[in-house]
Simulated scan of single mutants.
Amino acid sequence: MALQLTTFKTADDAAQALALQVSKDLHQVLAQEQERALLLVSGGRSPLPFFAALAQQPLAWENIDISLVDERSVRPDHPDANAALVREHLLCGPAAAARFLPLMSHVAAATDPWLWARRSVQVANANPALVKPAVIVLGLGTDGHTASLFADAPQWHEATTTERRYVALQPGQAPHARVSLSLHALAAQHACYVWSGGAAKLEVLRRASTLAAAVADGSLDAATLDGAGAIARLVADPGVILKVYHSQF
Rank of each mutant, 00 (worst) to 15 (best):
L90E: 07
L68Y: 13
A52K: 15
L91Y: 08
L101S: 03
T10R: 12
A147S: 09
N63R: 14
L3E: 06
A212T: 10
E33K: 10
L18V: 02
I66K: 00
R118T: 15
A214Y: 08
H184M: 10
W61E: 12
I64V: 15
L138Q: 02
H157K: 14
S182I: 11
H246K: 05
G139H: 06
G93F: 00
R87W: 09
Y245F: 15
D12R: 11
M104C: 11
D13L: 07
M1W: 09
V135Q: 00
A208D: 08
V41H: 00
V41C: 00
A153E: 09
A200S: 14
F50H: 08
L59M: 09
E35L: 06
H78F: 14
A187H: 01
R87S: 06
S105V: 15
H27S: 13
A96I: 00
A52C: 07
H176L: 06
S46Y: 03
I241G: 01
G44C: 06
I241W: 02
Q32L: 08
D12G: 09
V235Q: 05
D237A: 14
Y193K: 03
P76S: 07
A11C: 07
G172S: 10
L3R: 07
H157C: 13
A191F: 02
A60Q: 15
V41D: 00
E71K: 02
L205S: 02
A212P: 08
D77G: 09
V86T: 04
D77T: 14
P171M: 12
A151E: 10
L205Q: 03
L85G: 08
A213V: 07
T6M: 06
Q155S: 15
W156V: 14
T224S: 15
P58N: 13
R119V: 11
F150E: 10
A214P: 02
Y166A: 04
G229N: 05
W114P: 02
A147F: 03
Y245R: 05
D143N: 15
E158P: 01
S196D: 04
D112G: 05
G141L: 04
R233P: 04
